[in-house]
Amino acid sequence: MKRIIIASVAAAALVGGGTAVAVAGTQSSSPATQSSAPAAASTGASLTQAADAALKAVPGTLDSIDRDHGRWEADVLGKDGTWHEVTLDANGKVIDQRVDPDDNDPEDAAEAKALRNADVSATEAARKASSSTVTSVEFDGDRTPVWEVETVKNHKERDLNVDAHSGKVTQAPADDDHGDDDSGDDD
């Protein structure tokens, strides 16, 4: 915990243009305070580490992963064909896993088929799309299957699409407040 506080104070001081002096006491060796992440303890698990942990908890194919409010939320299509929601803490430890009861309609079957046929995985899409921090990757198999990747660099968000077959990275179309792909056109 001391390492997180020290890193946070130092980062805040440097961002603010000042300097920081920190004195660290002895480090606790309890498993709860040690991080297996190779990066600084304040950053927690990377998207790849969180994805690996989610897939270890539920073997299958990662459909989406998103960092929100200090936690990772992942959707996994299990090898048995059921959809699972996996919640991980900031360090990538699974804190909840359950079958998603809402994902059982025919549209989800089409999504599952497109996801299974993708040549590029979620973590590969994240690597292809970013030289900055990836905060979200989500599969979209509605038309041309793509991975929607959200990145952040210097506090600026950028949305990219990665073709699920070729791996080609393109800028995502600007969001339109007048329409939403999830609005459910009932024709």
Rank of each mutant, 00 (worst) to 15 (best):
residue 30 S to Q: 08
residue 32 A to Q: 11
residue 32 A to V: 06
residue 33 T to D: 14
residue 33 T to Y: 11
residue 33 T to W: 08
residue 34 Q to H: 10
residue 35 S to C: 00
residue 36 S to D: 00
residue 36 S to C: 06
residue 36 S to M: 08
residue 39 A to V: 14
residue 41 A to W: 05
residue 41 A to E: 09
residue 41 A to Q: 10
residue 43 T to S: 13
residue 44 G to D: 06
residue 44 G to H: 03
residue 45 A to T: 12
residue 45 A to P: 05
residue 46 S to F: 08
residue 47 L to Q: 02
residue 51 A to L: 14
residue 52 D to T: 14
residue 52 D to G: 14
residue 52 D to N: 14
residue 52 D to V: 14
residue 53 A to T: 13
residue 55 L to H: 01
residue 55 L to M: 08
residue 57 A to M: 06
residue 58 V to D: 01
residue 58 V to Q: 07
residue 66 D to H: 03
residue 67 R to A: 10
residue 68 D to F: 09
residue 69 H to Y: 15
residue 70 G to A: 10
residue 71 R to E: 15
residue 71 R to H: 15
residue 71 R to L: 14
residue 71 R to V: 15
residue 72 W to Y: 10
residue 72 W to S: 05
residue 74 A to G: 11
residue 74 A to M: 07
residue 75 D to K: 14
residue 76 V to E: 05
residue 76 V to P: 05
residue 77 L to K: 00
residue 77 L to V: 07
residue 78 G to W: 08
residue 79 K to P: 13
residue 81 G to M: 06
residue 81 G to T: 12
residue 82 T to H: 00
residue 84 H to M: 07
residue 85 E to Y: 06
residue 86 V to F: 12
residue 86 V to W: 11
residue 89 D to G: 15
residue 89 D to N: 15
residue 89 D to S: 13
residue 91 N to P: 02
residue 91 N to C: 05
residue 92 G to R: 00
residue 92 G to N: 05
residue 93 K to I: 10
residue 94 V to F: 04
residue 94 V to N: 01
residue 94 V to C: 04
residue 95 I to G: 02
residue 96 D to G: 02
residue 99 V to G: 01
residue 100 D to C: 11
residue 100 D to F: 02
residue 102 D to N: 06
residue 102 D to T: 08
residue 103 D to K: 01
residue 104 N to Q: 02
residue 104 N to K: 05
residue 105 D to C: 04
residue 106 P to R: 11
residue 106 P to I: 10
residue 107 E to H: 02
residue 107 E to D: 11
residue 108 D to G: 04
residue 109 A to V: 04
residue 110 A to E: 02
residue 111 E to I: 08
residue 111 E to F: 10
residue 113 K to W: 03
residue 114 A to N: 00
residue 116 R to S: 11
residue 117 N to M: 08
residue 117 N to W: 06
residue 118 A to C: 12
residue 118 A to Y: 00
residue 119 D to E: 06
residue 120 V to E: 03
residue 120 V to G: 01
residue 120 V to N: 02
residue 121 S to H: 03
residue 122 A to R: 01
residue 124 E to Y: 04
residue 124 E to D: 09
residue 126 A to E: 10
residue 126 A to C: 04
residue 127 R to K: 13
residue 128 K to Q: 02
residue 130 S to I: 14
residue 134 V to F: 07
residue 135 T to M: 13
residue 138 E to C: 12
residue 138 E to H: 11
residue 139 F to N: 11
residue 140 D to K: 07
residue 140 D to Q: 07
residue 141 G to F: 10
residue 142 D to L: 07
residue 142 D to F: 10
residue 144 T to D: 15
residue 145 P to E: 02
residue 145 P to H: 03
residue 146 V to E: 09
residue 146 V to I: 13
residue 147 W to F: 09
residue 148 E to I: 12
residue 150 E to H: 09
residue 151 T to M: 08
residue 154 N to H: 15
residue 156 K to A: 15
residue 156 K to Y: 04
